[in-house]
Amino acid sequence: MEKTAGKRTVHSSQRQGAAKFLALPLIIWLAVFVIVPLFLVCCYGFTAEGADGTLHFSFENFARFTEPIYVKIMVRSLKIALISTVICLVLGYPAAYIMSRSSSKIRTLIILLILMPMWMNFMLRIHAWLTLLENGGLINTLLAAMGLEKVEFLGSEGAVVLGMVYNFLPFMIMSIYMVLLKLDNSLLEAAYDLGATPVQRFIKIIIPFSVPGILSGISMVFVPSVTTFAISQYFSNGTVRLIGDTIEKQFGAANNWNFGAAISIVVMVIVMLSMFAINKVDDGDIGERKMII
């Protein structure tokens, strides 16, 4: 007995050593590709180019960001991301619930249908949508053929929301589904035995149980929605400017990396704060699982 225990200790410490070693590539990877870039972003954000071309420490990029036009863009980005997240939740929750309750065959089929588009390239999917929605696109050609009036789909905030919901909905569904899958049926049976109505069971058991899934779904949708630029550019013909577009422009055509970096830092802080707020909801007895931002 003792011998076995001793052996086990040696074994597990050996394992730990190996684990440490195996973690090394990841640590190097994170250091080189996460920490160093983050440091560089800060370097750019807190410096500005003087008249003579030299760099000096400065808050002027952040000061520029407080100008009304940029604040407006930030607010608009948060608003659109929030709307998209709520729609994803409203659409995604029932889908996830139905999936978790269906037979494994149907479940596999639904998962396949949800995930299959994601095997395709992101830009390709956007262009497929454009082909559908354009004024001369498939839907409008069909409408026109039926003698109906054409609908202007693209070029509005609504179109951008549509693009975001389409692209990020699978993240919401899968997050909630993974949690609901673990729901022990005996809990529901017990509630039933104790006389709970279906509505009561849903509100008192299923929803609280799925909170961690909802929260991780929210962050999986909200964070990319705040920062995306491709979706807004294509679905709005460049007429709905989000903070992601503004950042991208600074690193591209406008060639002002310092300002771009400063905006990125502000966005990062805002996202972190909102994630922190969401995490606050998550503590207490339901949330054994900590959120991953």
Binding site: I69, K72, S236, T246, Q250, A254, N255
Partner: peptide
């Protein structure tokens, strides 16, 4: 050049649907 870049950035940033 900076002025041109800044003007264009601000024009695009002013787009408000």
């Amino acid at each position: 050049n900076r002025l041109y870049d800044q003007i264009w950035t601000e024009v695009l940033a002013s787009i408000d649907n």
